[in-house]
Design a protein around this nucleic acid. Structure first.
Lengths: 214, 214
DNA sequence: CATCCGAAATCTGTATACAGAATTCATAGT
DNA sequence: ACTATGAATTCTGTATACAGATTTCGGATG
């Protein structure tokens, strides 16, 4: 096995994000650098570098002299993030090769159809959803845009575990994905983009009630 | 005067960006951390923190063991960035209060009309252009989006000084700004957004020839 | 009992130190 | 003359140390 030769700060960042997905950190709690560094088995230096990166992505916020803390969640911010990602993913479609999009249409349809059952683990549902969106964007030739989308989505991870253990209307989500896939196969990019934006906005509405008032 | 109580890394980031605007750094050159830290009169720690932030914004890139360097410019990346900002600013209009937009319309028109003469300093032209866009977005209620736009625009600063000392068609730029302002005053947000996107795309085309092939 | 004040403790922000990776440069060999 | 090799140098990545800011907590004061 090739040993990991990436900078520590990146490995730390990913570890923190995966812990965030597992719900290890409550939103709004501040971070104790020495404790967390000891827990991770690294020194404060690369940890702080990772924290600064995460702060740039909106996952954390920092206050002078008070260090970092996980940014509190709010309906307003979640709405803002959804609007942004909706626009960016739609733009990514515009930047994709139309013929490629038509090619992956069937695959996207398949993925949308065998959406995990409502019984499945929350983690599993999210993984499947991500896979669908990743495939959708895989033909985007705007690399900078793909990086940006990844970065903005990192900022949304704080909201992911909020709807755990809830019978979310998965059928709606699946149906909307199907619609996007079908529109792509017909080659109507404009309408596909619109359907994709709708999917994000609808998904936002569905989650809204799960987010504490402020 | 209130002394600056922001973290050093932020002050350093801004100093580096302003040096970049002045054309102090050639694209593609690597950064010597000890030399730069000494020059700035700070230690390597906050300098590296600033460098990591700038790398996250796309201004720098980092390679394991090789440190940071100013990301090389390319037509492809510039096109990508323009497409992104065009979409984001257009979205920002959608997120703004329509009545507020109608109110600032005249002011936007004024600013667009007394665009600096072609004799003016390059810096002055850019400052004026930025002022116009800032005012345009000042009514956007999506704070996350405003931060994101600022961040993406930071990544574009590497391209700003490339068109120095050139008779850019400023009239076109001014005319397009006027058109956006007029559409806002009529209250036609959809068309205003489209005109704004066109402005970015046209501006991109104008600059394209000034960017070295690769 | 609430509140204000200050010392102690805690934690961050910055500086410095150290180890190892990457580069440079000189030398030996073909 | 050109390439390969390896020691010396330079620089980054990470760890540790230090100073000052912030929070905590206990006692004095109304």
């Amino acid at each position: 096995m090739p040993i990991d030769r990436r900078p520590l700060r990146e490995q730390i960042r990913e570890e923190l994000l995966s812990r965030l997905d597992r719900g290890d950190f409550a939103a709004g709690t501040d971070i104790n650098e020495v404790a967390l560094a000891a827990d991770l088995g690294v020194s404060r230096t690369p940890l702080r570098e990772a924290l600064i990166t995460l702060a740039g992505e909106g996952v954390l916020e920092s206050n002078q002299g008070r260090g970092f803390r996980f940014a509190p969640v709010s309906r307003k911010e979640f709405r803002e993030l959804c609007e942004i990602v909706a626009a960016l993913e739609s733009l990514a479609l515009d930047c994709s090769d139309p013929t490629y999009l038509r090619e992956i249409g069937p695959k996207l349809l398949d993925l949308a159809r065998d959406f995990p059952d409502r019984i499945a683990e929350q983690q599993e549902i999210e993984r499947h959803d991500d896979e669908w969106h990743d495939l959708l964007l895989s033909g985007c030739r705007n690399e900078r845009l793909l990086d940006l989308i990844t970065s903005v989505k990192a900022g949304m991870r704080r909201y992911a575990h909020l709807l755990a253990g809830d019978e979310t209307p998965l059928e709606r989500e699946a149906a909307e994905h199907c619609r996007v896939a079908e529109l792509l196969m017909t080659g109507d990019l404009a309408q596909a983009g619109e359907a994709l934006r709708d999917n994000w906005i609808n998904g936002m509405e569905r989650m809204m009630s799960h987010i504490p008032a402020s």
